[in-house]
Design a protein around this nucleic acid. Structure first.
Lengths: 195, 195
DNA sequence: ATGCTTATGTAGTGGTCACTACATTATTTC
DNA sequence: GAAATAATGTAGTGACCACTACATAAGCAT
């Protein structure tokens, strides 16, 4: 069994480059030419390594989601749920307004943008969205069990509210809002915390 | 001076059809063929009446914005700011989840989606966004003057928070959230109202 | 070294894109 | 009715799209 010529580029690094292009131009707006140029490879290498444009997008979404799932887990591990959620939103603001990258969130863009994605992409979007909301929900349920939340609080609804605020922040960032603007939004958003 | 052959279609109705296509497919995803088919006209008529694809999109955005500006003004006219804002968000939920139309908001989609729009489109998006936030801000300032809000409240920040929640709702709707889901989000969001 | 396997670079493929030339038709003005 | 004007339908235009055929290069096993 022979092993063949080795790949001359790092798959994850290429994915990160592709992700940036998708983030800046959207799925439809990003051409294979844009992508290959940013990734530093030629079309046949892209297709050999990633399948096609949709599958490349899926893999970029997957990687992007994994990276942020780690951060999410880290900030949610704060002593109290309230601190964890605040950290989550503050962290989101920082990421969304990071000037070294295109503003906004790839997930929000993919959900709202195109609209007619393939089944593979829709599935991935749904899964990652649910992962995120479930992580928040779990933290809240845990908090409720610990007596941090009033008895009447619905953790699922609160989780969805927090998710919605996060998505709103992503839209704001894409529209050019500053970090200061968004931090004040977070201040207000946390005012909804059940007392 | 002669007047020429009259246009055989209603410009506003054609704009509404175009708007629906853009809303469903996004700017990049909507082809001229998609548009002309939905509008019931041929390409030369489209170009003669609207200029080009970008200008058509601009005009669709303009019309869309005007329609919702009216609704906004109507609901914000409620006796108190708190009632007005609640009505605004409840109305948004209803519109965003209207099953007879593609879910979501064209503005949010345009802001978050593509990314590399022409100057004309970016200008329009910015203007409409500011119109919306200013309408909320004005209502809040008026409320503050009337003693409805605590002295320390920053109407600009509150207006941005409300706008952000509305944008988050649009993302949720685009992602398939139900009216019930979003109404519960609004319940929480209003919990942030300064006391 | 030779054969096997896999990645790479060059150079395209058909298809669709936004957009338009042109002849024709419909309407108003004179 | 004739001239002027403007919208319409047919049928394209070159450009760019996602994607690939093919010859070559680079590594491993023997």
């Amino acid at each position: 069994m022979a092993a063949g010529r080795p790949r001359s580029f790092c798959k994850n690094q290429a994915l990160d480059r592709a992700l940036e292009v998708f983030r800046r131009k959207g799925f439809d707006g990003a051409s294979i030419c844009d992508l290959t140029e940013a990734m530093g490879i030629n079309p046949p290498s892209l297709y050999a390594a990633f399948g096609n444009k949709e599958q490349l997008f899926c893999q970029a979404l997957d990687r992007y989601g994994d990276v942020y799932a780690e951060r999410r887990a880290a900030v949610l591990a704060a002593p109290t749920a309230r601190e964890g959620i605040e950290a989550l939103l503050r962290d989101a603001v920082i990421n969304l307004t990071d000037k070294t990258k295109p503003s906004g969130c790839l997930y929000v863009q993919a959900i709202v943008g195109g609209g007619e994605h393939s089944a593979c992409i829709r599935k991935m979007l749904k899964a990652k969205r649910e992962d995120s909301e479930r992580a928040i929900f779990n933290r809240l349920e845990c908090a409720k069990a610990a007596g941090e939340l009033p008895g009447g609080t619905d953790p699922a609804a609160l989780a969805r509210y927090i998710t919605t605020v996060g998505q709103g922040l992503a839209v704001q960032a894409a529209g050019g809002a500053t970090r200061k603007d968004l931090d004040r939004v977070v201040d207000f958003a946390l005012g909804a915390w059940p007392a």
